[in-house]
Amino acid sequence: MTALLLFDIRRIARSPRFALFTVGFPVVFFLIFSNVYGRSGPGAAAYLMVGMAAFGAVSAAINTGSRVAVERQVGWNRQLRMTPLPTPGYLVSKVLASMVVALPALLLVFLVGAFTQGVSLDAGTWLRLVLVCWLGVLPIAALGLLIGMLATGDSAQAMSAVAMMTMSLLGGLWVPVDLLPGFLAAVARALPTYWLAEFGRDALAGTAPAAQGLVTMFAWLLVTGVLVIVRYRRDAARA
């Protein structure tokens, strides 16, 4: 499992285009938003920073997971089935790869926030913020893998772009949910991305994550996880 994780990470780390789009894009977004709205009130820059960091992590996790579609298409998974690598080992390794790629995306936005946008927090808050936002990406990493298991090599990019945009916009990562029409605000509260950003803001404020958020996150992780396993089994049976 570790071998597969390292193998995957090494390949991703070598792809400059992948890094540029998944890690670089949210930083650029953050700089633009922050310069437009960042001075609008105390804590505005920090608020934007959490949303954009979450966006970066979500985009990295979904894009990493959806790469599985291409791997399946070229027959790589068939090749892997000829090894003792167990199903859980494969799936866990894939989710971990997404988590590992999400971390620098998250950290980069935080660094830019701290060093160029004047976000100043104490060390404990930074640590909590990183930890909470990173762990909160877990259901999204599972979602990315599900896209990878469902899509073909051709449709993977489109599917992950749609998932990423919907999740980010409706989850309130780009604009506050309160600015969305009422029924969309209700939808937002059912999304893991909304709670991801909420958890980040809770960490800023030093409050504990809401129970509703934890339940929603866990439900997403459970459902996508089960769907991934079902889909993986079906893929194996059909091969």
Partner: peptide
């Protein structure tokens, strides 16, 4: 396998290394 594929962005050593690592 005829239809088993390799990943184009991995090196030969990485690919063979992965297979060598997963067997007992």
């Amino acid at each position: 396998l005829q239809s088993g594929g390799l990943l184009e962005d991995a090196t030969v050593a990485e690919t063979v290394g992965l297979f060598s690592a997963v067997y007992p």
